[in-house]
Nucleic acid binder design. Structure first.
Lengths: 124, 124
DNA sequence: CGGGATCCACGACGATACTG
DNA sequence: CAGTATCGTCGTGGATCCCG
């Protein structure tokens, strides 16, 4: 990941790899997924993903921002307030993200018929 | 990756993460992409991905097989012949893979101009 | 509240050599 | 041809502390 997406110094680099580099981070997909329906603050994202550390949330968010998928809006107020939302480019990923979720959902329901999976919707 | 997909010991595990774990390997997406149109031998896959090592190709293929996405057919002949193809479940990923490629393709073509910063709407 | 800085563990990934 | 074995690197991701 990182390191200039458009590098493609060999002909084998195709869109598949590019997209996976962009959303391939451990939390990238989920972050984008949560940002699809609504703008969220840093802390809100953290609550939606209890297992992620601030460090990772910050890093993944920064990378997504660097790739032009997420917009970071800082409110210069006393209690810091930072809102994250999808950019126009980020929104073009929405269908893909949803497909990711749908397929994974179906996959999970067939893979482990006893694990009790949840089919929760973000904020829709 | 690996480590039992359906493990999800916390409620934040959704389909998005599951799918990304399955196709999230460095070469998984590309391998699947190449297997969409046709069955391929081990060596053929290697030629399509010059940068991958045998070790990685084998490992990624094994993981995909373990996740039930790829079928491995071994011909017990003198010069070993092994063919890889998508399973039924693997085929259900085809649309997703293609979307991955299409989006990444478009993404790469737009990445060049400067920073790729989106035009923010100074509404509020 | 949002995040930077630092240190560290681990597993993915890679290079090379060997084999049935 | 299609792997396996071994070793090494390096980046990703995690824990913790500190800061404006």
């Amino acid at each position: 990941m990182r390191a200039k997406i458009g590098q493609r110094n060999d002909h084998t680099f195709c869109g598949v790899e590019a997209t996976l580099e962009v959303i391939g981070g451990k939390w990238k997909g989920v972050i984008l997924y949560h940002l699809v329906p609504e703008t969220l603050r840093f802390g809100e994202l953290g609550k939606l993903m209890p297992k992620i550390t601030q460090r990772m949330l910050t890093r993944q968010l920064r990378e997504l921002e660097g790739d032009g998928l997420v917009h970071r809006k800082v409110y210069p107020v006393v209690p810091p307030r930072v809102e994250y939302s999808l950019t126009e480019r980020g929104r073009t990923l929405a269908p893909l993200i949803m497909q990711l979720k749908n397929w994974g959902d179906a996959y999970l329901s067939k893979e482990q018929p006893g694990t009790g999976f949840d089919t929760e919707t973000p904020g829709d």
